[in-house]
Structure formats: structure tokens, C-alpha cells
């Protein structure tokens, strides 16, 4: 049984087809990279999976449950978490409170009270290395720290599927290495299925991915194991243009 299954999902904005008949399967614990240039429909696809948008056509199935038109707040308790391209911390709240919110309303939300959630937050903070910022308002963190905090907040939700929207965009190479190590660690330790979305093909991230899905103009161009996907002439064409020399 796949963890997440998209069947022929289509989303239009007026005349623009943002996501065009996409089929997709993700197994539990799998690490998948979604690659595609700007405007290829990656973020829209994420928004369909976590319920910000409902697709016009097709089905979204999570653990055999049809969640196509389930509101986002009901999907998080099922185990779907995400981070945003531009981090969206609850700026006025402290780092600890931000992460505790994740624990409170995630998959274990019903079973933990406020104190237990704060405890979970403390543990998660240690793991991402934000201990010295614990009681600071999240708004004053640096962009990298905000990204880490968002991941921590998502982890505190104890998700089964984590959608990471451009987790490394705009980061310094040193920070990217740190982030990659961290993501690798959580992927193996927590057995969370991770779907990481990146605009450009990044060796570092792709080294971890079992499978790469390349989106182009809203449609799935390639869906193959990482190595094959990277060598696919269609992918090269999307990024570099057609090879006219024959």
C-alpha cells in the first residue's frame, strides 16, 4: 500500500493549468525529490497534497483514505506535514512555543497536553541545535535558523509524510551541507517519507533521493530512479535547452 497516491490530479487557475494529470506514488519511508524549473507546478502540487488547494480533477489518497477535499487542518493529524519555501514561523511566539504547536496539533495532538508538548518541543530543539534560541521570538532568527525551526516544528508533529519546499534555497554552501546531513539523519531515524522539492538539480540532495520526479509545465516529465532521471535527455533539455548539434 502506498503512503500517498495521486491519481490524475489536475489543478487550473483560470486558463492556466498549474498541475496537469499528475500520477504519483510514495511509499512509507521513501525519500523522493521533485525537481522542476520555476513555474513548473511544484508548489501547487504540495498545496494539493496538504489541502491548501483542492484539485479540479483526480484523487489524492493517503493511506487508502480519499483526502481529495479534506481541509488542511484535518490532514495534519493524519500525518502530513510541510515546510515552506519562505519560512513562516509564528514570529511573535518563542521557538519553543512554535515547535510545541506542532506537537499539540500533529498526529499525537489528541494524546498530549500542553506540558507534554513543551517537553517534546525541548527534545526537538536539542536535535536541530537551536537550544540557545529556545526562548527567543521566532521572528528574530536568521533565515537558516528559521528553516531549521520549521523542520523542527514539522518533526514535532510526528508526521508520516514531510513535504519540504525548497529547504535549501538561498543558503550558503556550508549551511546546505549541514542541512543535508540533518535531513539524511531524520529520514533514516524517523522513517518519515520525505518529498523534497528543489528548483535546480542539486547533487547533494539528489544523492539521498531514491526517486526523482521532474515536473515541467505542470506535467510529469520523468519519474525514475535518481541516476536514470538525471541522465534522461528530456531533463537535460528542460534545464539546458535542446541539443541542436547532431
Amino acid at each position: 500500500m502506498p503512503l500517498l497516491k495521486l491519481e490524475n490530479v489536475t489543478k487550473r487557475f483560470g486558463g492556466l493549468i498549474a498541475v496537469n494529470r499528475v500520477n504519483l506514488e510514495i511509499k512509507a519511508g521513501q525519500f523522493i525529490g521533485i525537481v522542476g524549473p520555476n513555474g513548473s507546478g511544484k508548489t501547487t502540487l504540495f498545496n494539493i497534497v496538504n489541502g491548501v488547494f483542492f484539485p479540479e480533477e483526480g484523487k489524492v489518497i493517503f493511506e487508502d483514505q480519499n483526502i481529495t477535499i479534506l481541509p488542511p487542518y484535518k490532514r495534519a493529524p493524519l500525518g502530513i506535514a510541510r515546510t515552506f519555501q519562505i519560512p513562516r514561523p509564528f514570529c511573535g511566539a518563542t521557538v519553543r512555543e512554535n515547535i510545541a504547536v506542532g506537537a499539540m496539533f500533529g498526529t499525537h495532538g489528541r494524546y498530549v497536553n500542553v506540558d507534554e508538548s513543551l517537553e517534546i518541543a525541548d527534545n526537538t530543539i536539542k536535535r536541530v541545535g537551536l537550544r540557545k534560541h529556545r526562548d527567543k521570538p521566532a521572528g528574530i532568527l536568521t533565515p537558516v535558523e528559521k528553516k531549521l525551526m520549521e523542520i523542527a516544528r514539522a518533526l514535532a508533529m510526528k508526521p508520516k509524510l514531510l513535504l519540504m519546499d525548497e529547504a535549501m534555497a538561498g543558503m550558503h554552501p556550508n549551511d546546505i551541507d549541514r542541512m543535508v546531513d540533518f535531513i539524511k539523519k531524520i529520514a533514516t531515524e524517523e522513517k518519515i517519507a520525505i518529498v523534497a522539492m528543489v528548483e535546480h538539480i542539486m547533487r547533494a540532495l539528489l544523492g539521498m533521493a531514491e526517486k526523482i520526479i521532474v515536473l515541467h509545465h505542470g506535467a510529469k516529465l520523468v519519474d525514475a530512479p535518481t541516476k536514470e532521471a538525471l541522465e534522461d535527455p528530456k531533463v537535460v533539455e528542460v534545464y539546458l535547452g535542446k541539443n541542436t548539434k547532431k
Binding site: P72, K74, A76, F90, C91, G92, F105, G106
Partner: peptide, 16 residues
């Protein structure tokens, strides 16, 4: 607090 700071992010995090 979550919804005051960012309503959409709050929704995605499981808050009704």
C-alpha cells in the same frame, strides 16, 4: 497565537 501570527501556516499545522 499561531493563527494570529500566520493563519495559513496554522491551518497546515492541523489547527482548525
Amino acid at each position: 497565537t499561531a493563527l494570529r501570527e500566520d493563519e495559513d501556516a496554522a491551518k497546515v499545522m492541523g489547527i482548525n
